[in-house]
Design a protein around this nucleic acid. Structure first.
Length: 721
RNA sequence: CCGCCUGUAGCUCAGCUGGAUAGAGCAACGGACUUCUAAUCCGUAGGUCAGAGGUUCGAGUCCUCUCAGGCGGGCCA
């Protein structure tokens, strides 16, 4: 990056000057961009803290540096301001030419980085909280790739948990009329209802996303089940029964045959055959996964591999992790006390857990079953390639292709059903291999999980550490973010629209926000919200169009909807609850995604018209030599300077896992451009040098904003708005 | 009880290695479209940065305490 080059050169010059004048060389010299352009283009505030060390007044130090440094040629002059700031003024045309010529920065180690995100329970439709996870995870992936890393994206599928079992309990044991109601049918036998349900399960490929999908059906059924658990004890007992059947496996049974057996059992009033129940559960989970992939595809989010919990279980990942933990002495079997009979890991040795009342974490229950955290430890070890067999080989999954996909542009929707990219799922047969593809074994692992999982995530990291892998523990990064909740106004809006009541009391509705709950059916479904956004966007496009028919209305509306949504998720800092409000989320004006998109569209339009009417396009880099010696006004220059800072912002955003910085940077660029747009016409400007300057600055902006929006934030830039 | 997070304009939020005059958007009011698209721009108004101490040349930012709100600390997932 050209700006970085000058920064480094100036920093060295300052360090040298300090050494010459005072015999003191500071460890690092940081140059910042001052808040206002009249103060200069770069500033060194370091004289102030040095005053004490050198026992000199800050201004004296700054003066000595200003006079004694051999500044790089691009530094036009230096000034000392305020208490002792050293401000540098750069030769603007030279910098502009360099920024313009040398875009794109791909430094990095090239090490494999694993990012796990999305991870939606496959028992119901995705809601807007899942979108925050997926969008943040996806932006992290995009930024890591920009920094030169090879990134593997994993979407973990918890296909054997109780939540899937709950839906199966509903399908098999809820009264027929309730299931019929969810299906929109008048009634029918259990057999007929199960057939109708099965008819809606996508079994292959990824369906087109809609709000009447299989996952939406599960969204209806799941809360009915959890509600009934409260009041109907025999019904509640079915949960353990179904879970047990799921653990027993499907025995290779197909879905049709399973439905046949389930139907026969229902008709005869006999118990359901366990392997048929397990088959139904597997199909329910898989059907939901396919629906979730469809939802995320709309946003341009894709994955490399889908690790399945069932495969972790069947392949004995935990058994192997257990042996490693036991052999290293990291865990012990408690013989007495409240944890008698459990295998526990002591966290007492770690300072992070030092003042805990009970620093022992149970990994294996007294009944011999493993906890969720235990499975997570095994999975985390596998991600680093540290889950090894006694012979030293890696304990691994089997793999098979799950779907093909393609993406036409960096922020375009993901299209399944063909294309050159393969999405792979794990299998329980380690001899299954997908040629040319290997998974796991990353050097750094990011787990994108909401902040409430901080404690178990710490435990997992600690387990990696006590197994003798402190470097992997340090590279186990929990990307924690706060949840999405609903404003009371949003809750009322949903209740009004659906005619349902969530039964929230006054106290709950008086709070700042209401937590979403799949169990209670409280939430805004992702696909539904995207549909609403698209409809609103289409309406806005039509309103602004003077002709009756709008070409590409659908794709333009889709782009605006995705832009609004992704920016909404990205602009808020991660450790604040996002209180979802319809009015705010559906806004297309002000600090929104469409504002950013509009700046890109508007700027690109300048060059369309320019080509059309003057035969001029974006200037060639050597054309800018003509600008040598031109005075570049502060406002245009500000845009150049900010464009040059993108690389710095990306590094900062990744280091802090704070992508609101990047969103804010994009907003600042768009804002600078929109302000300039009115006062700096290009097409009508007759002075060729001034026109060239504006062309250069706006061309820089077009490239930069497009790159930030599409490649980094995943926000598409439509042709027109 | 312990730990983590949050508290900035009427509302929603930026302010990220302590730095120069605390910024946006929404809402309110007043302006700018025969112009490269007004999803824009310009202006007015709006602040004890929760409170109190401290460190520092300098604190919204760091430290201590207090207050208020949220989330964790399961042999649940």
């Amino acid at each position: 990056m050209p700006l970085d080059g000058i920064r480094n050169a100036a920093a060295t010059a300052i360090a040298d000057a300090l050494e010459n004048a005072f015999g003191h060389r500071p460890e690092e010299v940081v140059l910042e961009v001052p808040p206002r352009r009249e103060l200069g283009d770069l500033a060194w505030p370091g004289a102030l803290p040095l005053a004490r060390v050198l026992r000199q007044s800050p201004r004296k130090i700054a003066e000595a540096v200003a006079g004694g440094a051999s500044w790089p040629a691009e530094v036009l002059r230096v000034e000392i301001a305020g208490p002792g700031f050293l401000n540098l003024f750069l030769e603007r045309p030279t910098i502009l030419r360099r920024v313009y010529a040398g875009r794109r920065d791909s430094s990095g180690t090239g090490e494999k980085v694993i990012v796990e995100h999305t991870n939606i329970n496959p028992n119901k439709a995705a809601h807007i909280g899942h979108l925050r996870n997926a969008v943040l995870g996806d932006i992290l992936v995009r930024c890591l790739r920009r920094l030169g890393h090879a990134v593997e994206v994993q979407n973990y599928i918890d296909d054997t948990g109780v939540q899937v079992a709950d839906v199966v309990v509903g399908l098999l044991f809820l009264p027929e009329d309730e299931i019929a109601a969810a299906l929109g049918m008048d009634g029918g036998s259990r057999r007929a209802l199960l057939d109708a349900v099965a008819g809606r399960i996508p079994a292959v490929g990824v369906p087109a996303a809609s709000t009447g999908d299989f996952d939406d059906l599960c969204w209806e059924i799941y809360p009915r089940v959890t509600a009934r658990y409260e009041t109907d004890e025999p019904f509640a007992a079915r949960r353990a029964e179904v879970l047990h059947a799921v653990e027993g496996g499907t025995g290779g049974l197909g879905l049709d045959e399973a439905l046949e057996r389930l139907g026969r059992a229902a008709a005869a009033g006999e118990p359901y055959p366990p392997e048929a129940v397990a088959r139904l559960a597997a199909s329910v989970a898989d059907g939901n996964v396919r629906c979730h992939l469809a939802t995320m595809a709309r946003l341009g989010v894709a994955y490399d591999v889908l690790p399945h919990e069932s495969d972790i279980l069947h392949l004995g990942f935990w058994q192997r992790a257990f042996e490693l933990l036991r052999d290293s002495g990291a865990i012990r079997l408690e013989s007495e006390g409240k944890n008698a009979g459990c295998w526990v890991m002591s966290l007492a040795g770690s300072p992070e857990f030092a003042d805990m009342e009970d620093p022992d974490k149970i990994l294996v229950r007294s009944n011999g079953t493993v906890t969720y955290t235990g499975k997570d430890i095994a999975y985390q070890l596998w991600k680093f390639g540290l889950l090894t067999d006694p012979d030293g080989g890696r304990h691994d999954f089997g793999y098979r292709p799950y779907a093909r996909w393609t993406q036409d542009a960096p922020a375009a929707e993901v299209r399944y059903g063909g294309g050159d990219r393969t999405l792979v799922r794990t299998t329980s047969d380690p001899s299954d291999r997908v040629e040319g593809l290997q998974f796991g074994g990353g050097s750094t692992v990011y787990n994108v999980i909401d902040v409430r999982q901080s404690y178990p995530q710490k435990v997992v990291r600690e387990a990696v550490r006590v197994l003798g892998h402190p470097e992997a523990a340090d590279r186990s990064i929990h990307f924690a973010y706060e949840m999405v909740a609903l404003t009371p106004a949003a809750v009322r809006a949903i209740e009004e629209a659906t005619g349902a009541s969530f039964g929230l009391d006054e106290a709950a509705m008086a709070k700042a926000y209401v937590e979403m709950s799949g169990r209670r059916g409280i939430g805004v479904k992702a696909d539904e919200f995207l549909d609403t956004l698209e409809a609103r966007a289409a309406g806005a496009i039509r309103e602004r169009s003077d002709s009756g028919t709008v070409p590409d209305l659908e794709s333009r509306a889709r782009g605006i909807a995705v832009g609004a949504l992704r920016y909404l998720m990205a602009r808020q800092s991660r450790n604040r609850v996002l209180a979802f409000d319809f009015d705010e989320a559906l806004a297309f004006e002000g600090d929104t995604g469409p504002y950013l998109q509009y700046s890109a569209v508007r700027a690109a339009k300048i060059f369309d018209k320019l080509r059309e009417r003057r035969g001029e396009g974006e200037p060639a880099p050597d054309e800018l030599e003509r600008l040598a010696g031109t005075a570049i006004p502060d406002d245009l220059w500000e845009l150049v300077l900010q464009c040059a800072r993108t690389g710095e912002i990306v590094r900062q955003a990744v280091a802090n896992l704070e992508f609101s910085l990047l969103a804010q940077h994009a907003h600042e660029l768009a804002q600078l451009f929109h302000k300039l747009y009115h006062g700096h016409p290009v097409l009508r400007e007759e002075d060729p040098d001034l026109r060239l300057l504006r062309r250069a600055v706006f061309s820089l902006f077009v490239t930069e904003i497009r790159d930030i929006l599409e490649t980094l934030l995943g926000i598409p830039v439509p042709e027109e708005m």
